[in-house]
């Protein structure tokens, strides 16, 4: 952007900067600092012990399992949806994009509730599932389902605008040069969207590992069995093990920081590829 020579008086400038910095410091920096300070309040030994305790390890395992199922599913969905929406024209496209966004606007608690109403004892399939001894609600499958629901939009949302903007010329070029469908996808389409995909995956993963409301409704809070990391934090905090709760929370805070770093990297990479004078559209 060209810098405008016009600007506000220095006093106004300084005041606005001070207000913005103070606001962000209070709302972002201070909570971030507090997480790590509280986590280490009782020393490094207590910190590590809180992470190594069996229930914590079980929560880590369950969180990783949940993400390992929800994230790949939503990556495949995101790629598939972005291909259909980004590269083709068809009626009802905007409605479909809105539908993909839907889980974003549903309250996490309601996201959990809808699965309880489907698979819980009082739900549509509840009696049938009970008769066949399949447990979904208050068990791991319910946690995974609720997590999939809340993370549906992440990858698709990153990829759809990207694929739309890139158009179809590269793919057409690959086709004319004799590439098959998969060759085109792996060698041309995927490399073109890799940075957006990476960010989408990071966001999806952060949410999958950090989801609280939806998982809380379907989990049943059985310690060591159906508690993910955020639920484990809740239990520790409510039992007045604040330092332990923050120790576990610091893991998720680190994950958040890595996600933000990935975002910065991706933005830097895409701004670089945009700076190419290649596409004068």
């Amino acid at each position: 952007m060209r810098e405008s020579r016009l600007s506000e008086p220095p006093a106004v400038r300084r005041f606005l900067i001070a207000v913005a910095v103070l606001f962000l410091a209070l709302f972002l920096l201070m909570p971030l600092a507090a997480v790590f300070t509280e986590a280490l309040r009782k020393g490094v030994g207590a910190y590590l012990a809180a992470l190594w305790e069996p229930d914590a390890r079980a929560a880590i395992r369950l969180t990783l399992l949940t993400a390992a199922i929800a994230v790949p599913l939503n990556v495949v969905f995101g790629l598939v949806a972005a291909w259909a929406i980004g590269k083709f024209d068809f009626p009802g496209k905007h409605l479909l994009i809105t539908l993909i966004d839907l889980p974003f606007s549903v309250s996490p608690v309601v996201s959990g509730l809808i699965y309880v109403l489907l698979f819980g004892l009082q739900g549509w399939f509840g009696p049938w599932l009970a008769a066949h001894h399949v447990k979904i609600i208050f068990a791991v499958p319910g946690i995974i389902l609720a997590t999939i629901f809340v993370t549906v939009p992440f990858v698709a949302r990153e990829l759809i605008p990207l694929m739309q903007a890139q158009g179809t010329e590269d793919e057409e070029a690959a086709r004319v040069l004799g590439a098959g469908g998969w060759q085109m996808f792996w060698r041309v389409t995927l490399p073109n969207v890799k940075w957006g995909l990476l960010y989408g995956v990071m966001l999806c993963n952060a949410r999958a590992m950090g989801e609280f409301g939806a998982v809380s409704v379907v989990s049943g809070h059985i310690r060591g069995q159906t508690t993910t990391l955020p639920l484990h934090i809740e239990i520790l905090y409510n039992e007045y093990h604040a330092a332990a709760a923050f120790a576990v929370a610091s893991l998720l805070a680190c994950l958040a920081l890595v996600t933000l770093a990935a975002k910065t990297l991706v933005e830097w990479k895409t701004s670089q590829s945009l700076r190419e004078p290649a596409h004068e559209h």
């Binding site: 972002l28 909570p31 971030l32 507090a34 997480v35 509280e38 996490p108 966001l203 952060a206 590992m209 950090g210 989801e211 609280f212 409301g213 990391l229 955020p230 639920l231 934090i233 809740e234 905090y237 604040a242 709760a245 923050f246 929370a249 998720l252 805070a253 994950l255 958040a256 920081l257 996600t259 933000l260």
Partner: peptide, 13 residues
């Protein structure tokens, strides 16, 4: 950060 930080962590903090 508020996008990336789990809500439970934000809550207790």
């Amino acid at each position: 950060l508020p996008f990336a930080l789990p809500t439970a962590v934000a809550g207790i903090t």
